[in-house]
């Protein structure tokens, strides 16, 4: 099972074993990672699961689709490596992924 490390804005690291097929958001919610609310349950409707993806994984994670990009355009503190974690599906390729949660979601 791939491991994903969630990093709080203050630097606290939480490595978590994720399940293939679930999303980075779902993995966070089920493991009570602070800073990811995901109010809409992954419908790409609320932008409360915003994360920064570690630069070294940007290629593997891929580009946001149009819907997600539009949501991100209006999220707070967006960076080039911003993604909505409900739109990133866990796979073996993502083993070792590191994502940081924005301060505004805490």
């Amino acid at each position: 099972m791939p491991t994903i490390t969630y990093i709080d804005h203050d630097g606290t690291e939480r490595p978590i074993e994720a399940k293939n097929g679930e999303t980075v958001m779902e993995t966070a919610i089920k493991n009570s990672v602070p800073g990811i609310d995901a109010d809409c349950g992954g419908a790409c409707a609320c932008a409360t699961c915003h994360v920064y993806v570690d630069e070294s994984f940007m290629d593997k994670v891929g580009q946001p689709e149009e819907m997600e990009q539009s949501m991100l355009d209006f999220a707070e503190n967006v960076q080039a490596n911003s993604r909505l974690s409900c739109q990133i599906q866990v796979s073996d390729d993502l083993d070792g992924l590191r994502v940081t949660t924005p301060e505004s979601q805490h």
Partner: peptide
């Protein structure tokens, strides 16, 4: 409808 920017803004 299929218009997230309109929704969020």
């Amino acid at each position: 409808i299929n218009s997230p920017p309109e929704f969020i803004a």
